[in-house]
Structures are given as structure tokens and as C-alpha cells.
Design a protein around this nucleic acid. Structure first.
Length: 257
DNA sequence: GTTGAGCGTT
């Protein structure tokens, strides 16, 4: 995929990895290869892309055979306009296995010492723990949540879907053409559902009176909508068919809800 | 169709 060897990384024994940032989402490794190959021997070019959509994440990794060439490429290609975007070329800080990299070269730490007790994460990988402080950074970038967005979407969709399932007719609607995404979403929802059966009301120490709708704006519109659709079942009978024939039990509406 | 800080695959 996007690299020469179709089976993972070819050889990272003595290769120098360069991180190319700020590239366009349409730029592919094939486009960067000639550009970087001109300044040195490029061993492999890899562009991480989303496994679901398959779109580029906006950065690429270029592995050079020699450090001097890599350094030259960094100085030459750094700031170069590619596909209408100014790319940023710099030495990679971390390797695929979270190995430390010195000047782009991967230092095999796990080979010698398997123990990873040493802090090898100079940068917080999980923003959830740092969201209290990183929330400012998040504000300026909304595209950062490529993975968070999915989780958010799945959770919200899951909750909403379930909510509607109990309230109104969900599956009786029609297919919107979700396709396989629906399956994926459903699978994910199930997983979350298992871990958290029902986490709809996050009230750890709320009042004993479970007020589901503080703003009281949940069933109101629903009831009104239903009323609008059938304001007067008796009076409004398009087919001349009395409602009593169709709904022998007037209190059926309550039972439905 | 969108996006824009960052660190990677069999």
C-alpha cells in the first residue's frame, strides 16, 4: 500500500525516517517519491491513511538511506510547495514501534532492553487525560478528531438511535443508503453497549427525583407532531372511514407511547 | 465535496 514492499516496512536497519507534514490530503507517496528521490536515495515512502475511509492523514514518512541525503532533503524540501501546499520536512521523532529515533535513525531500544518502564513518551498520546489543559489547543483545530470524531459519532448515534427505537418507529422508516457503514456502526454500538449497558443519564449523585428532561423539551414536540399529523381522527377521514373502525381503543395512543 | 495539528504500515 503506497509503498514499494507490499509487506510492511522493507528494511529499517539503517534508514533515516523523515516526517513530511502539511501535505495535501490528495498528495500520495508516488508524488513525494520523485521529489524526495531527487535529493537522495529514498528507501520507502509511506503515507498513513485512514483504514476506514482510506484518505491520507495529511503527512507522510520518507525513509532515506543516508542521513546526509535526508538532511539535505529536509533543508531543500522543507517549505517546498507541493500540490499547492507548503510541506514541512523534518526528522521523525518516533518509529512505528514507538522506538526512539535519533536524527531520523531508529535506535533499537526494545532489542536490548525489553523493559519499557522508562518513559518513552515525551509527548502525551492520549488527549483525554490532558484535555483539561489541551482543550485550548483543541479549540483551534477541529479536524484533529479523526479518531475522536468517530467515537463521538458512534456514541451519539448509538444513543440517539436507541432512544428513537423506544420512542418512535425507527426501523419502520426507510433505508437512507448507509451501506456497510451501518454494519460497522452497529457492531461498534453493540460493543459499547456491552461495556456500558445504559449510560444515558450521567447523574452520579443527582436528586432522587429522576428528572429526565430538565428543559422539558423532549416529548412536547413529539406529542405535538403526532397531533398535527392526526389532529382529528374522527373529523378528518379522507377515505370516509371513521377512526373508530381503525382504532377501537381511543387509549391506544397512550399505550403506544 | 469539507478538514490542517501531528509521528507510521505487514
Amino acid at each position: 500500500m503506497s509503498h514499494f514492499g507490499r509487506s510492511g516496512p522493507p528494511d529499517i536497519r539503517d534508514t533515516y525516517s523523515l516526517l513530511v507534514l502539511n501535505i495535501t490530503f490528495r498528495t500520495t507517496a508516488d508524488d513525494l517519491f520523485p521529489l524526495f528521490d531527487k535529493y537522495g536515495k529514498v528507501v520507502d515512502v509511506f503515507i498513513p491513511r485512514d483504514r476506514r475511509t482510506g484518505d491520507s492523514r495529511g503527512f507522510a514518512f520518507v525513509r532515506y538511506k543516508y542521513a546526509d541525503e535526508a538532511q539535505k532533503a529536509v533543508e531543500k524540501l522543507d517549505g517546498r510547495n507541493v500540490d499547492g501546499r507548503e510541506i514541512m520536512v523534518q526528522f521523525a521523532k518516533y518509529g512505528p514501534n514507538a522506538e526512539r529515533i535519533h536524527k531520523g535513525r531508529i535506535i533499537e531500544t526494545s532489542s536490548k532492553s525489553k523493559g519499557r518502564s522508562r518513559s518513552r513518551s515525551p509527548r502525551p498520546r492520549h488527549r483525554d487525560e490532558y484535555r483539561d489543559r489541551d482543550y485550548r489547543k483543541r479549540s483551534r483545530s477541529r479536524s484533529r478528531g479523526r479518531n475522536d470524531r468517530d467515537r463521538y459519532r458512534g456514541k451519539e448515534r448509538d444513543s440517539r438511535r436507541r432512544s428513537r427505537s423506544r420512542s418512535a418507529s425507527p426501523d419502520h422508516h426507510k433505508d437512507r443508503g448507509r451501506g456497510r457503514y451501518d454494519d460497522e456502526r452497529r457492531s461498534r454500538s453493540r460493543s459499547y453497549g456491552s461495556a456500558s449497558p445504559a449510560r444515558r443519564s450521567p447523574s452520579p449523585r443527582g436528586s432522587p427525583s429522576p428528572r429526565r428532561t430538565p428543559p422539558s423539551r423532549e416529548e412536547s414536540p413529539v406529542g405535538r407532531k403526532r397531533n398535527e399529523r392526526s389532529p382529528t381522527p374522527k373529523s378528518v377521514s379522507p377515505r370516509g372511514r371513521p377512526a373508530d373502525s381503525r382504532s377501537p381503543s381511543p387509549h391506544n395512543s397512550d399505550a403506544d407511547e
